[in-house]
Design a protein around this nucleic acid. Sequence first.
RNA 1: GUGGCUGUAGCUCAGUUGGUUAGAGCGCCGGAUUGUGAUUCCGGAGGUCGUGGGUUCAAUUCCCAUCAGCCACCCCA
Length: 455
Amino acid sequence: MPEKIKPRTLKGFRDYPPATMIPREWIIETARRVYRSYGFCPMDTPSLEHLEILLGNGSEETDKQLYRFEDHGGRSVGLRFDLTVPLARFVAQHIQELGTPYKRYQIANVWRGENTQRGRYREFMQCDFDTIGTTSLSADIEMILVINDLLSALHVGEFTIHVNHRGILNGLLEKLDLSNKANSVLRALDKLEKIGEDRVRKELAETAEATSDQADQLLALTALAGSNEAMLAEAETLTAGNETGELGVAQLREALAAVSAALSPEAQDALPPEAQNRIQFAPSVCRGLDYYTGIVLETTLDELPSIGSVASGGRYDNLADLYTKQQLPGVGASLGLDRLLAALEELGRLEQTSTTAQVFIPYFAADRRNDYLKLATHLREAGIAVEFYPEAKKLGKQLQYANRRGFRIALVIGDDEFDAGECQVKDLTTGNSKTVAYTNHATALIAEIQSILAK
RNA sequence: GUGGCUGUAGCUCAGUUGGUUAGAGCGCCGGAUUGUGAUUCCGGAGGUCGUGGGUUCAAUUCCCAUCAGCCACCCCA
């Protein structure tokens, strides 16, 4: 007998059995619903692109992480490592037909050949939404509202949206004459919470050659704490005299005020106290996202901040300048679905179900198959998802199966019930059952099922 | 990509200071109970100890490599 091939998956690539796929789809559906509720429209692009498209302004890091190869026609190609670069190519190619403002969402896999860790895989899904072709602050405000709606709808527990404006830090850097060291400075400042002020100071001195006076000012900004209003006032003082910084503070102030106004006061008051500050000015949020130029945001879960940002985004001045002369400003953000799922799993916030139907019909009376199928059809027509067991096994076994899969209701019908035109509706959560007539288009039965499902 | 830790049944783990037939709990399958699932009792299946090599009379145990997972660094457009 030949050796069997060992079944296995590649590092960083995973299977998604039903128990993980069901919550996954639920998140996708929720994201889709929220995005659509703001008028964002679906679109997609190919997984594979010409290498030159993806490399574009690529940093060395991108280079290293990119999955690339030569296709059968000898072309250099690569798998997309995010959804923003393909979007840039897409709008550069199609903006004439699309018109502006163009609002899109895209939920798709991306690939990065980086080392794996909890919540970090080589194939993972991003749920992006963007508004292209407008510089209006309304779009920025809307981005914050979308993220707030989305995470609220996902039942992730309390979360914090950390909002900043690139202009504030850039302004301070200009003022301190450190603009040419921006990357090193931002990278060091971003580690503040992680490694502490002393080591950040050290890193600033080493990598950005910052003087201790410069470091003082940078840390004065990033270490700000207190209410959003108070912090903004401090930031205003620190950047005073610099146009970029002042504009940044002003825009952020306006956006935060608008977000508060948009969220109804009643809804706000109904939230627990910690949630009323869920949108916070965070002067140190600036990492990565090099092309962002305006408002930026990151979102962390209050119960598990260590897993990192589960949704981030911001405003960019010119999305597609690599591919077109047309200036295309925009604003957009992305939900990191796999990281979020990893977090929810760790927090025990995922529902354990392996079924998509709520109602189970055991195959009980062996020669009544067509009657069972007919009943199932009736229920489906009423919008109730039903699974009919394929074998006329012992009832106990079938109920055990139903219980394990997480069905809510079993409809027990044997010869006696068929003859009497009734049906036992068994609530699998409580174990109680109730006998209901199912004749007359099963109206009474449907009502009973719906009342149990509504619980 | 660099460094560290880990890998024993489907799951969570014990264990062997190198030595006969590698264990437990939970889960799974069957029966007690041929019309009712989470309890109870009885029985059963399931492991080349991640994989490959080396040292040894003997390796699941020691060594090397490799694969995978986790952690830190790096990075996260």
